[in-house]
Design a binder for these strands. Sequence first.
DNA 1: CGTTAATATGAGACAATCCTCACATTTGTG
DNA 2: CACAAATGTGAGGATTGTCTCATATTAACG
Lengths: 218, 218
Amino acid sequence: MDSQKSSAGASKTAKITKTPSRGRGVQRVSALLDAASAVFAETGYEAATTTEIARRAKASIGSLYQFFPTKEHLAAALHARHLESLAAVFDSLAAEAQGAANEQGAASDGIIDELFQRLLVYLEANPAFLVLGERRSLDPAVKKQARARLRGGIAGLLQTIEPPVPRERIAPLAALILHLIRMAAMLRADDDLTIRDPAVAELREMLRRHLAATQVKA
Amino acid sequence: MDSQKSSAGASKTAKITKTPSRGRGVQRVSALLDAASAVFAETGYEAATTTEIARRAKASIGSLYQFFPTKEHLAAALHARHLESLAAVFDSLAAEAQGAANEQGAASDGIIDELFQRLLVYLEANPAFLVLGERRSLDPAVKKQARARLRGGIAGLLQTIEPPVPRERIAPLAALILHLIRMAAMLRADDDLTIRDPAVAELREMLRRHLAATQVKA
DNA sequence: CGTTAATATGAGACAATCCTCACATTTGTG
DNA sequence: CACAAATGTGAGGATTGTCTCATATTAACG
């Protein structure tokens, strides 16, 4: 919900975004973010126009700039919002893994399959997230932080599976899996119907095999 | 070298690009393409300006527009040029595989490793290719054709390895490998130093394992 | 009901960029 | 050398897009 980087300083033109304090404002912001998500997904970051976003949110441009002093701020807020949603996915998945562990004594490695599935669904439903995560204007520090957060979530899940994965492989594996999921999403969005489903199947099988081989069976 | 789509019709504003007929023009075109490659790689397609490209090529904007009637035409020509180079890589690799087959009786599956390596090197040396292949304005038909060409190259190599890969797995595998290589390139460009090399290693090991398991040992 | 802070509006200032055009220069050719 | 075709030039037309601002509307609260 926090629309701007008020805490992590170094904002050159310390332009203060007005956070809505009344119900109407909150709704507007939400509608603007929704519209932005759609437009960014359709046209990409650069080609997206603030005018079009405002139009779709049934707001005037002035209204948009009341809450988001810059197109870039709008993108940042939307990106942050998506990250929150993804964090929720990780949390629920971790809870499931925990539950399974308590019942059976150990979490299944199927949790990774489940993760793969859910993230894929999320990314297909919210293509703007990938667009925003790859846009040129994204502050490298923010990008790094976002990646670290996602990798951390995956690493957390990797730690729970049984038989275990060697400690030192967890970090690179998490990075790999994150990229694989993004790749699967791109693959589904881009490619030919006849090729994309078999290719995604091949990808998942490859990952399962690799994971199984990496777990220490001893 | 063919700068425009003179053959495969359906060009709406059938604007005819002037192909250089004198040596000076050929050099200009080459310099412009080089400059474009650099600028596109640095800033992405949309943020790249024709003015900057002309400046780097030490040409005037007028000169640029003499040979490329549109920024988009320039991008298309550059994309085509990169595709040619990549085709050359595939050819040389196929020749090697053929040579190895004649000497030892069967091509090694190490040829895929070699492919991976060479494409990775090419993509790192020519980041503009990825930029152009993913730009929003890229004609879907052209994109499809480019992908098919690359997949075809990989499929050709897959067919030569011994023990063989089942026929019906070749196409999806080729698609998968193509995406994996792109992913590896992005991974190297994007990620943290401490994570990227282990992650790429993990990726290559995963692919090797998957390939080995897919080959019919019988 | 009256005051005031929040929210809404859209014309247009300002800047950036693609591309054109009228004209200049170079170079191959008879 | 004379001529024509190819190539070179850069000011500026035309368009587009971000963001500002003066002003209008809404709604919470005593």
